[in-house]
Design a binder for these strands. Sequence first.
DNA 1: GTCTATAGAGTGATAGAC
DNA 2: GTCTATCACTCTATAGAC
Lengths: 189, 189
Amino acid sequence: MRRIAPDRDQLLGIVAEVFREHGYEGASLALIGEATGLGKGSLYHFFPGGKEEMARAVIAHIDGWFEDNVFAPLRDSTDPQAGIGHMFEATDGYFRSGRRVCLIGAFALDESRDLFAGQIRDYFGRWIMRLAEALARSGHRPGEASELAEETVAAIQGALTLARAANDLDVFSRALRRLRMRLGLPAKI
Amino acid sequence: MRRIAPDRDQLLGIVAEVFREHGYEGASLALIGEATGLGKGSLYHFFPGGKEEMARAVIAHIDGWFEDNVFAPLRDSTDPQAGIGHMFEATDGYFRSGRRVCLIGAFALDESRDLFAGQIRDYFGRWIMRLAEALARSGHRPGEASELAEETVAAIQGALTLARAANDLDVFSRALRRLRMRLGLPAKI
DNA sequence: GTCTATAGAGTGATAGAC
DNA sequence: GTCTATCACTCTATAGAC
């Protein structure tokens, strides 16, 4: 038979955008079906657990992207400053300079939080931990590094909220510029 | 007829909590009816525009609270530092030290943003503007004051998201403590 | 026949409008 | 309370690949 369905990776990307735009409650199966071009049969074939499993898979997919493109470089760069610089570039790219919101952050505020609390806590916890380690390796005292890491991740989340609220992308790029400076990185070209 | 309904102020407070806990989509009229003790008939009597009007009224109600308890003190305090200190206390109290999320911030991330974009932009815009003015009056250069104000409001939003994600209230109080320091206020007792 | 992927009618529950 | 629309979801049927 013909294979119309995109592979799982593409599929999760499309479903993620529906959740991102409409929230967990607002993302109806009708919308998801429309966006993916799949009928309910196919959707339930891929995700027997229904909408909840779709969301779980989407969160895991995003988490995996950050693991590969943000957390791992923070952990593995021999030069911690380079890892932190990489984090800012990847973050700016991922959120399309403020055009995109953080789906996991949005889920954290929603009632859907209870369903996905573990995944949400893990994602942010790992981000802060990897950044704190990199900051410690680049010379900050451990306690200070932890606070600075927490502050940085919170600032990114807040900037996404504010950029969206003000409908002004500059809010996000200004925030990233300030954070780069505070973390001792050279101003970006 | 018997008057079971609380007055409009109380009513809006109750409806606000339902939106806060469940989001715009997730807050069903059944939930709202249950929380308020009002039937659908009464709800449509108070809010002929239905759920959308309820949300609009709730946002306006919250905005009014911040106007009175945060924005006005920032504008009117003869000592700008006192106004800023007052802002932190009111903010900490309002968000119950991180137990409560910012409904308007949550709406900003949701699809409901399109419905309430004007109100959302106004709220955050006024907060940042009043804070920037107070910072300018307390000695910061105007451009610096603007950036610092934006950074502060974003940090508060981000801390609320993170506190909720980590299920750890300390995230919020640590953020407020750092912000107080950065804005030149004495550490809180 | 078996497996995977598909479409979509049909389920009861519940949504918001009135 | 009544209305209709839509919700998440189930189920049956069907396709071609093996």
